[in-house]
Write a protein that binds this DNA or RNA. Structure first.
Lengths: 338, 338
DNA sequence: GTCTGGCATTGAAACGTTCCGATGCGCCAG
DNA sequence: CTGGCGCATCGGAACGTTTCAATGCCAGAC
């Protein structure tokens, strides 16, 4: 099963290889008579252009890569989706890769994509990665960091203002009347987590009667939320918080379920805010108040920024920061009612 | 910013290009002295091997592609994840692509992957696709169809026995005592949906006192489930079903939420079974009984089968069918209690 | 001292494509 | 009739890699 190449097509159609190439890339430049012969030959021989040959000659591909920690997380899936739609406007395909929060796999895919000479990379990561991206960029592959703001001016990035998001979540809890508030999340070394906590504690500082407790939950999954909630249930009632800000919706949903099962009335006794507004936040039996970071323009902004840096336009700013937005639902509205 | 190639590395290290290539591919064949020099040159020059050159020469790549309708669906994300893990055992990378249920995008990615000469393809689709895969295979790219059983003997496939799954769901509803049962799902043209319904109606036939109503819900999302449930709530109480089999968990969760909000007691008055056992089935406030199709061995089986057909081993069977498994939780257990 | 065998190294060919300068042909103007 | 122009087509070079036959070297055996 030898692969059929452009010269075989040319031979079969009785034309020169250059003409076949012309037919493929500048169809208007070739006479309709030969075009028909070539079309027929391609069909009968089952010719598929080799990307390797094309790319070798051209030096560039028409693919961009998106490396995300975990595609099963709806948050990244949505970004991927909108990136993909926008990229197809430019005629480029998107290959997705899953780093699964592992540094090695992140590096492995970085390497694979670089070897494939992708036009550009879009990277979401929980790990510090700017220095690695700088190395990749110095060898000719530009990238946009998504989800964490870049520290370097050179590194393009699209991010959410997580400090502001954390502040909004906390201000909301304070405004419905919570005073003994717990922040649930971790690890604190992750920038997103640290930022959300920073915003939260800013807000709480402005309300002297309020206290902020930090509960570390390294897992950030539904199961992690359940564990936290189980620990809270085992506390005496008067030591429990009356408001919880969970650093993402999965945690919040786990907490919600276990607290409700344990007899805590939400939102009357305890108000709960999540973060991300994932698909299931609204679908929970008690719809979850949350911070929505995603935005219709997110994927568009990411791809457009990537194309700007690919074409080396000197853009005004390589950083784009979106403000998140509070979505208030039943898990907080009605706090204090009885 | 000219790309640095293997000959520049060779010149810089004062060796021949062949030696550099040897260093990269058969490191034991090159003296440690030159190896050091080469290593240093690669480092200083920032050399990255071009996949295009390598692939052009070799004729094959070390990548496989996975095309799924929708990576944001946890069901496919989990398959991708396990496929990826198994593939890395073989030293190949997996590129993911999102067809988003569109035939054009499916075709586009099929073409892109074929042009990239991936070693093999893994494809999940809701659409009939066997003929297209046959064409791709005839040109040298093998594939494994995942999720729908292939009709052709030539086409490798790994699938779930959805007929059996539908039967199990229905038998479970019957065994807890339901008699007026509704099947919610659609479109019926999709094989998975049709199979689940077929199994369900097989089971119901064996219980003469039971009836099966089919409610078409083309959406198969949480929102779709809500719409169905809203319609049910507007019926007189004695015309409502006492058991519901939803064709996937998203539908079931939407139904669950709206019915509970509407005052229906689950599972006492109405038992509910979903399908897929996604992450949120267990996390729902009333944990959802469901059919678990996924299986630890699924991804492994897919990749192993793909490698078998890639190496053209004459395998005993190109089809692997997994039996799903009932996971009984609170949404059915306790039906009829008051 | 010479020959042989083994091993590290070399240089060139080949993979399939695109691009570019060259070729040939037909047509029109002079 | 001839010269020139435009346009379709052609043929070959180049992209970066791997492989393979050929080369050079050294050690050990005779």
């Amino acid at each position: 099963m030898a692969r059929v190449g452009i010269r075989e097509v040319a031979a079969h159609a009785g034309v020169a290889v250059g003409t076949v190439s012309h037919y493929l890339n500048h169809p208007d430049k070739v006479s309709s008579e030969k075009a028909d012969r070539i079309r027929a030959s391609i069909e009968t021989l089952g010719f598929v252009p080799s990307n390797a040959g094309r790319q070798l000659r051209l030096g560039i591909s028409t693919v961009i890569g998106y490396i995300a920690p975990d595609v099963s997380n709806p948050y990244f899936a949505e970004i991927a989706e909108s990136v993909e739609r926008r990229a197809s406007d430019f005629g480029v395909s998107v290959f997705l890769a899953n780093s699964h929060r592992s540094r090695e796999r992140e590096d492995a895919y970085l390497r694979v994509f670089e070897q494939h000479q992708v036009r550009g990379l879009i990277v979401s990561s929980h790990l510090p990665i700017e220095d690695r991206l700088a190395a990749v960029r110095s060898r000719g592959t530009p990238s946009v960091l998504v989800g964490q703001a870049a520290r370097s001016h050179e590194q393009a990035s699209v991010s959410l203002d997580d400090v502001d998001g954390g502040r909004q979540a906390m201000e909301h809890l304070l405004s419905v009347g919570c005073r003994r508030i717990a922040f649930v999340g971790g690890p604190l070394g992750i920038p997103q987590v640290a930022d959300r906590l920073a915003g939260a504690s800013d807000a709480v500082r402005e309300e002297p009667a309020a206290t902020l407790e930090v509960i570390n939950a390294p897992d950030r999954t539904i199961r992690g939320g359940r564990d936290v909630a189980a620990a809270l249930l085992s506390r005496p009632v008067d030591l429990r918080p009356d408001g919880i800000f969970a650093v993402n919706d999965l945690l919040a949903l786990g907490i919600l379920q276990t607290l409700v099962a344990g007899g805590v009335r939400i939102p009357e006794e305890l108000a709960l805010v999540g973060y991300d507004d994932n698909e299931f936040a609204e679908a929970s039996i008690i719809p979850l108040s949350t911070i929505r970071g995603r935005h219709e323009g997110f994927g568009v902004a990411v791809v457009d920024l990537l194309f700007d840096v690919m074409e080396d336009k000197t853009v005004a700013s390589r950083h784009r920061v979106f403000k998140p937005e509070l979505v208030a639902r039943a898990s907080t509205l009605g706090f204090g009612a009885r």
